[in-house]
Simulated scan of single mutants.
Amino acid sequence: MATHLRIVGLVQGVGYRASFEAQARALQLSGWVRNRADGSVEAMIQGAPDAVEKIIAWSRRGPTSAKVKEVVVSDTDDATLSPGRFDVRPTA
């Protein structure tokens, strides 16, 4: 089971992806994060339930210069994530 996040607001051009990646690595999560063409940020994460909850809580704030309006969280079985690996992907 993986968790998909869609983060909406002022989340591009403010270091959101790099900060998300640092948080995910610190929490030992697997997955990826990327910008979306619509101005949102998208992430797929997998790991210990408490670590997943911590990054969801962090994603609602983001880095200091971000202004998060909404975080849509959904669980999925469709993700294929490499354990121990977290990537920043190109914009989709």
Rank of each mutant, 00 (worst) to 15 (best):
T76R: 04
P49D: 13
A92C: 02
V14H: 09
T3F: 06
R6A: 11
Q46A: 12
D78I: 00
L81W: 03
D87F: 00
E53P: 00
A79Y: 10
D78E: 15
V33C: 04
R17E: 05
L29C: 09
Q12T: 08
S82Y: 00
S74R: 15
W32Y: 12
A37C: 01
R60S: 07
A22P: 06
G9V: 11
F86W: 01
I7H: 06
I56H: 08
T76Q: 06
L29Y: 08
I7M: 09
V11T: 03
V52S: 09
V71W: 02
D50T: 13
S30F: 02
I45D: 11
A24L: 05
E42Q: 14
P49R: 12
V71G: 07
E42C: 07
V41E: 00
R60W: 01
D77T: 14
L5H: 03
M1K: 14
E42L: 10
G84N: 10
V73G: 09
S30L: 08
V88P: 06
G15W: 03
K54W: 01
G39E: 07
V72R: 15
Q12D: 12
L81C: 12
H4Q: 13
R34V: 01
G39W: 03
S30K: 07
S30H: 01
L29D: 10
I45R: 04
A26E: 12
S82H: 04
A26F: 01
Q28A: 15
E53D: 15
Q23N: 04
V68F: 10
F86C: 10
K54C: 03
D75Y: 08
G9H: 05
T91M: 15
A51W: 05
L29V: 08
M1W: 11
S74D: 13
V68G: 06
H4L: 13
V68K: 07
G31R: 02
A79T: 06
Q46L: 12
R36K: 09
V33K: 06
R85M: 10
S82M: 12
